[in-house]
Design a protein around this nucleic acid. Sequence first.
DNA 1: TCGCCTCGAGTTCC
DNA 2: CTCGAGGCGA
Length: 693
Amino acid sequence: MTEPQSLPTEAEAANELMRLARKINRANKAYHLNDRPEMSDADYDALVRRNAELEAAFPHLVRPDSPSNKVGHEVSASPLGKVTHDVRMMSLDNAFSDEELGEFVARVRRFLSLGEGAELAFTAEDKIDGLSLSLRYEHGRLVRAATRGDGQVGEDVTANVAYIPDIVQQLQGDAPALFEVRGEVYMERAAFAALNERQEQAGDKTFANPRNAAAGSLRQKDAKVTAERPLRFLAHGWGAASEVPASSQYAMMQQIAAWGLPVSPRLATCASVEGLVAHYNAIGAARSTLPYEIDGVVVKVDSLAAQERLGFVAKAPRWAIARKFPAERAETTLEAIDIQVGRTGKLTPVGRLAPVLVGGVTVTNVTLHNRDEIARLGVRVGDRVVLQRAGDVIPQVVENLTREVERPAFAFPDHCPECGSEALAEEGEVDVRCTGGLICPAQRTERLKHFVSRGALDIEGLGEKTIIEFFQQGWLENPADIFRLHRRRDEIVGREGWQDKSVENLLTAIEAKRQPDAAKLLFGLGIRHVGAVTSRDLCKHFVTLPNLRAVVEAARGHDADAGQDGAAQLLGIDGVGPVVVQALGEFFREPHNVAVWEDLLNEVNPPDYIVETRESEVAGKTVVFTGKLETMSRDEAKAQAERLGAKASGSVSSKTDLVVAGPGAGTKLKQAAALNIPVIDEAEWAQIVARAG
DNA sequence: TCGCCTCGAGTTCC
DNA sequence: CTCGAGGCGA
């Protein structure tokens, strides 16, 4: 190492800390993401020690991105620090009937192109109502435990799980260099009841259900509190792994059990839908006798090779589903119906309820969705209604018990309750919208909320309350204003609830987003029909936001040729159709939007949007699949193409680089020939995939 | 034109 | 999480 080892001046120290943060964070990333350390452990330790030394000498110079705040290997974690999962922790798709379970099996078989006779096995196990945990074992030793969080970033609970006896610190027998076990932390029913009794006697707050008790007990800053709570753990899968020493889900779970971690005793394999239904029924019958609460049965494709082919949709694997038990229901009174105005102007009726306990939580609000839903249920203020929590989460009204009693029907407003503008449903649309647009304060603040929300810019410390407060002050009207809040520092400091420190934190969080992800920025603008996925696709295609704008403007320009070209370019993007093109065009036609856009791009500087993909000869090319594919479904082929950095498009155009044609291909094959585009068959495509590794 | 799938936009409680 | 609607294959 060439770093000076004596204590430097303050300026030098600040500089060195910055470089150390960069180096150590990069090394952590290389170590965790690629399982391929960039530097030796000794060098790494030296950097970490130097960082700690400088931070000790200059505590006021500790950086927000300091590696000491994070989890690296050998870096001790601060309590409940954040942890980025190398492999996302997914949620599961749900099935609420045997029929839906059958559809899942059919869907999987279709995706894998399995014929009638071909066998496909599944595993099934009880789904514990606890909280998901990821346990990272390196060479068999537990180095980190993290909660699920939002799936990408969770909380570090390594210190806390040391007090959970089910979680071994050292795996027994041979273990891979890296293996992340995933499972559920839970509290047994009896232990939950005893804990609540103790809490009550001590005058502490009690927990609504075992799940909340487990969550509250695990996520303790003081790990010693966790020690007094009887938590348990059950493994159900895995995440990042340097190797997976089994070829089936079932065998791998047995291996995890052999390593010393508990696995459900009700894990079984089933070869058919009938077998899965039978196992579901058996677990359902045993439900009340189990020591812990369960909310369904998880079904997974047993073959790991098949799992890999199936891959993932947005947030869940295609190869697993949760067959949920019927939701618990409750009865209560609808005390009022309020109208909320969303960022698109949508008027949403919200039912205010007499508080009622459903599935372990007290529900007081429920969405009634729209005018049609109110009419369908025939609900009026004062009615008795039946409530359930859909998927055990979102409350919904399932039935109205007072249909026959004379009461005036609910009159859905024809004016916006926030700005008084007319509110109406467009031709053929169900939703009633406020036509006030920019003059509607509700729409404006909702748009700002969307802009700073997770998924968009994700600015911490800028919540609903703050946005409304600053909006009312006239400090915050458009997204770009956020980046000028620093000029109001003196005005903000001293307002109620704002101290020097909190203003500082907010401004720091804002400054951290000066180079935002282009796709998140675009998503944050809230252009209709342009959500997170479409934003990503658009950015992938155009690399920069000005490029996107230029093409959108060309698409509706007066020059007919340029217009067609721009439109064709947009329509060539998978998932972009006429409605999305029109929405984009309308956005840029509105002068106010253009002003907001330009203002914002003067304040922030999103780097070029370039997605890292695997090297392959089709990288950056547009591929069209046509005809029948023999060994895989079209979905799978497209997913494959994207992994190779190619864009799978639906139609052949001058932008198409390659056509993969199976038997039965028609017009698209002719178009390809006319445009002189190379055509290959499925076997040749498979070779391209194989060559990319 | 139909039907399937994916995406967008709204939503609860802790 | 659910719903409606857009996109796209058949």
